[in-house]
């Protein structure tokens, strides 16, 4: 069996969908962040696979920048979670609906 690009793309699609479902069903903001990381990883896998298919370094370069942005996003997001949790213990995403105005 030869592993083609489609295998990686299919795995990326499944991983992305799992992350999306997790983001919708979980209420703990930290776990929701982890699901976002799953989705980002699915996209990274797709980038690398298509880059390998096209013989282009651009896919891997994009993944590099996605990694940086993901790290920045996690840092700021977790700071927001810490700031919220300090005011109210055990807040879930549903409790934070007041932020919607």
């Amino acid at each position: 069996m030869v592993v083609t690009t489609s295998w990686y793309l299919a795995l990326g699609a499944v991983l992305f969908s799992l992350g999306a479902v997790g983001l919708l069903i979980r209420r703990n903001p930290l776990v929701m962040f982890m699901c976002v990381e799953l989705m980002l990883n699915a996209v990274n896998l797709t980038f690398v696979s298509l880059g390998a298919e096209l013989g282009d370094l651009g896919g891997q370069l994009s993944v590099f920048f996605v990694l940086v942005v993901a790290a920045a996003e996690v840092v700021v997001g977790l700071a927001v979670v810490v700031a919220i949790m300090r005011r109210r213990q055990g807040a879930t995403a549903d409790d934070l609906s007041v932020l919607g105005g």
Binding site: L50, L54, D56, L57, Q60
Partner: peptide, 14 residues
């Protein structure tokens, strides 16, 4: 027909 696009536009993949 697989992914479309030009081959090796950015930099060649080693």
């Amino acid at each position: 027909d697989g992914p479309t696009g030009a081959l090796g536009q950015t930099a060649p993949l080693g």
